[in-house]
Design a protein around this nucleic acid. Sequence first.
DNA 1: TATACTAAGTGTACAATGAACACTAAGTAT
DNA 2: ATACTTAGTGTTCATTGTACACTTAGTATA
Lengths: 222, 222
Amino acid sequence: MNTKYEAYEQPGVTVDLAIFTVNDNKLKVMLAKRADDPFKDFWSLPGGFIKQGESLEEAANRVLNEKTGVKNVYMEQLYTFGDPARDPRSRVITVAYFALIPWANLSQPESEKVVDLVWSHVDKFPKLAFDHKVILNYAVKRLRAKASYSNIVYGLMPAQFRLSELQTMYEIIINDKLDKRNFRKRMLSTDLLQETGEKDLTGAHRPAMLYQFKKKEIAFLD
Amino acid sequence: MNTKYEAYEQPGVTVDLAIFTVNDNKLKVMLAKRADDPFKDFWSLPGGFIKQGESLEEAANRVLNEKTGVKNVYMEQLYTFGDPARDPRSRVITVAYFALIPWANLSQPESEKVVDLVWSHVDKFPKLAFDHKVILNYAVKRLRAKASYSNIVYGLMPAQFRLSELQTMYEIIINDKLDKRNFRKRMLSTDLLQETGEKDLTGAHRPAMLYQFKKKEIAFLD
DNA sequence: TATACTAAGTGTACAATGAACACTAAGTAT
DNA sequence: ATACTTAGTGTTCATTGTACACTTAGTATA
């Protein structure tokens, strides 16, 4: 190692993830209970140290897969937090990511009796370890902002869905009601959706056409 | 130090800066000639290792001040680059920032015979060290995007300016012509500008009112 | 000192987009 | 057969964006 480098402190580098899903009409984030000090038994955003030879994205995907079992979901880098005092023990810089998972993709959610992982309502979450409250609030803000000018919510939708389900998803994320006719007009004019040809026959009412996204890529709406 | 931490490689952490200014009707970025290996004598974005007890923002401001002599200019975190192979010697993760400096704020630009710093046109720059080409392109993209939906160009304007100078600045950044009347209407309707009461009497033509920004904060235009 | 020159400064008509709003349709349940 | 529920559909009006040309207030110069 170059001697010049040794004049500087080598901080630890972690990734931390704000993993979102929507269930029960609420935007939820995954929290992990810490097993060790510091902040033992506090809830925190799932994360971990970067491993040798692993890129930041690979580390984030590894943590995501370890905690949720899913792969290939929407994920983007959020921000890097490096306050010298954010970890009480030693210098740790964390690169925060946020990820979106359709609830339906989560294998047997809640059923495995994991007590150290919960899906917590983002507007009412417990005291968090480190600066994770700041990170989480930042992630929620970014998600809500992006929902209003992009199609990012596709990351939360199942493979097929009714337009009313898509509208509800938008309403949950942006936390506001939308006009049904204007919403449908706008969505169908974007060329992002296509009919699957199938109908949803559940419920005592007129069946809904089912739609899917043409491609799972972020696009800007306006 | 916790033994758990030692199981992981501790990468070096740097900040790298894309420092922009506009001069001679061109968007320019500061490049620094590397004195040492790796990439000795290549041009690169100015940067440096994080010091003990220094936050990322402090490190970025330190590098900014070392290279340009300025403080308190617009700066934001851009993205964090962590490919394991981005530094050929050892693992180095870099947190990239971008900064904007009005040309007029630069003390005696070019005059001090510094040969290891240049302002390079962003559309035609030399081969860069490391992954700095990727970082620079990302920064330019972000700046150009933000210019079209925010007032970020205030970071490039002197204290007082003519509306036509502001328009030219927008045109340089977004790389497109704007309609004079529509531009003025839009700008004056934002409540971001105020007349200074002074006039610019240079040139053989009707003098222009001089304006300033009410507050130096980013705002969204549409 | 009149005239030419240059950039500053100003308004309107039309097009496109966004927002508000209520009824009919097609199933299931009783 | 009737009630019930969500799906699905258009139009009007307000707001915003876009295209476009002439007058004004100085300086330069003949």
